[in-house]
């Protein structure tokens, strides 16, 4: 078995399953938001919607799904193209650097979302 400590769930199956589940959650969220926008919103109704605890939980779930989805996706891309096989040791250095960058960006987005959702 090939070991992979930086993959999300460390198992191919769990990554694969999570990738599908998070995609479904994101789709549902965007349909919900899209539907609301198409139905017409103003500031007051938009604000009221995001004051509902259910909407905040749904939004948080969507952002966490996005975070997992992005991590799994970026990990797959990086381990395809930035590898020791393709570019020697430079591949390892670049890949780890990009992974750290990705996790930082994802982390900031998650914290920022929580702040937006519960901060106003």
């Amino acid at each position: 078995m090939v070991t992979a400590v930086t993959s999300f769930g460390r198992s191919g199956l769990s990554d694969w399953l999570l990738q599908r589940i998070s995609a479904v959650i994101l789709l549902a969220y965007f349909i919900c938001i899209g539907g609301t926008l198409l139905g017409g919103v103003d500031y007051a109704s938009w604000k009221a919607m995001f004051e509902l605890t259910s909407m905040r939980i749904f939004s948080l779930l969507a952002v966490l799904s996005l975070a997992a989805h992005a991590w799994i996706g970026m990990w797959a891309v990086l381990t395809d193209y930035l590898t020791e096989r393709l570019m020697g040791n430079k591949g390892n250095v670049l890949r780890i650097a990009f992974q750290i960058l990705c996790s930082l960006v994802i982390f900031v987005y998650v914290v920022w979302t929580v702040q937006i959702l519960w901060g106003y």
Partner: peptide, 9 residues
């Protein structure tokens, strides 16, 4: 032996 992120996935 196939359940890692590379072999099958």
């Amino acid at each position: 032996k196939l359940d890692d992120p590379f072999s099958v996935f």
